[in-house]
């Protein structure tokens, strides 16, 4: 190593190693949370979508099923976005604002 390296080493925050660490921390946390999910979630999502479609037509990506750990119990969260002109079902959402904010 030479004199230049000495000055180069004074800037640790923008180093490629710290970028690597940050990327890995995010990725590993995400992959670990995926790992603990039961593998029936995609099938559950498909079946639920099928049932909902008997009553109202919704998009393939209008349904999300997520599993989250909350303390010592797990929460299965089901989110279905109904289309606006769904006449068959009551529709609390999406609400429309008369004065959209800038």
């Amino acid at each position: 190593m030479g004199l230049l390296d000495y000055f180069r080493s004074r800037t640790p925050n923008t180093s490629s190693a710290s970028v690597a660490k940050e990327r890995l921390q995010i990725l590993v946390a995400h992959e670990r949370s995926e790992r603990n999910k039961p593998d029936y979630l995609p099938r559950l999502q498909r079946d639920l979508l099928e049932v909902v479609r008997r009553y109202v037509h919704v998009d393939d990506n209008a349904i999300t099923v997520t599993m989250e750990e909350d303390g010592n119990h797990e929460v299965l969260e089901l989110n279905i976005v109904l289309p606006e002109e769904a006449a068959a079902a009551p529709k609390p959402k999406p609400r429309q604002r008369s004065h959209p904010r800038r």
Binding site: M1, D5, R8, S9, A17, A20, K21, L24, V28
Partner: peptide, 19 residues
């Protein structure tokens, strides 16, 4: 260790933090 000091390589502590 040299590349770790230069910020070019993940350190032992970094890898332990992650894993």
């Amino acid at each position: 260790p040299e590349r770790v000091r230069l910020g070019e390589m993940l350190s032992v502590a970094d890898v332990q933090d992650i894993l």
